[in-house]
């Protein structure tokens, strides 16, 4: 219990400092630390697969992508006048999200829907397939359509980046090897 409270306090401190920080390099590193602390929290909740993803994606790759995006722009955030309206919108959205969690069953509640409806079938099915990791069975077999969609989303993201950032490369390589002028028709 104490560990959870300490980790959540860390998350709060990191989030506030990211929002207030002007140095974008430090902010990018702090978002990586935020993901790492979240991964620790997921591990405490026995969700090792989620923690694994959070550590690899949040703390690893997205920090790198933030840094490479930073190399295209300036390191220090430009000074902007303090505006009230965005803060109010964010605060209201956060309050609505917290209000939404009030209806959720308590953590570890055996009567929660997540522990009742399908869990037994998933566990038995994984046993029939001789695959110990139930999470893999659910993701790849029972919810194969979802995972197919997720893979397509990753593919679409890569294609989008290629089209947005790769256009210049194509144009430049065409300038390096200019097409021969068309043969004059006799």
């Amino acid at each position: 219990m104490i560990i959870e409270i300490v980790l959540f306090a860390f998350l709060l401190v990191i989030a506030i400092s990211v929002a207030r920080m002007k140095d974008l390099f430090a902010a990018a590193m702090l978002t990586g630390i935020f993901s790492l602390v979240s991964a620790g929290l997921f591990t405490l909740m026995d969700a090792v697969d989620v923690a694994f993803t959070e550590a690899a994606v949040g703390a690893g790759v997205s920090t790198i992508l933030f840094l490479s995006a930073l190399s295209l722009t300036d390191r220090i955030e430009r000074q902007q006048p303090t505006r009230i309206l965005p803060f109010v919108v964010v605060a209201l959205t956060g309050a609505a999200l917290v209000y939404g969690t009030l209806d959720m069953p308590a953590y570890g509640d055996v009567n929660a829907p997540a522990h009742n409806d399908l869990t037994e079938e998933f566990v038995e099915g994984a046993g029939d397939m001789h695959i110990p990791n139930v999470v893999t069975v659910v993701l790849a077999s029972y919810r194969g359509f979802d995972t197919f969609g997720e893979t397509t989303v990753v593919f679409a993201a890569a294609v989008g980046v290629m089209m947005l950032l790769g256009g210049q490369r194509r144009r430049r390589s065409r300038e390096d090897h200019p097409q021969p002028p068309p043969e004059p028709s006799s």
Binding site: S68, S71, T151, L165
Partner: peptide
Amino acid sequence: TVASAMTAIFYFFAGRA
């Protein structure tokens, strides 16, 4: 897909930089 998509995104960002 994930390995090559992440590498591709890095290539294009770093190539621009």
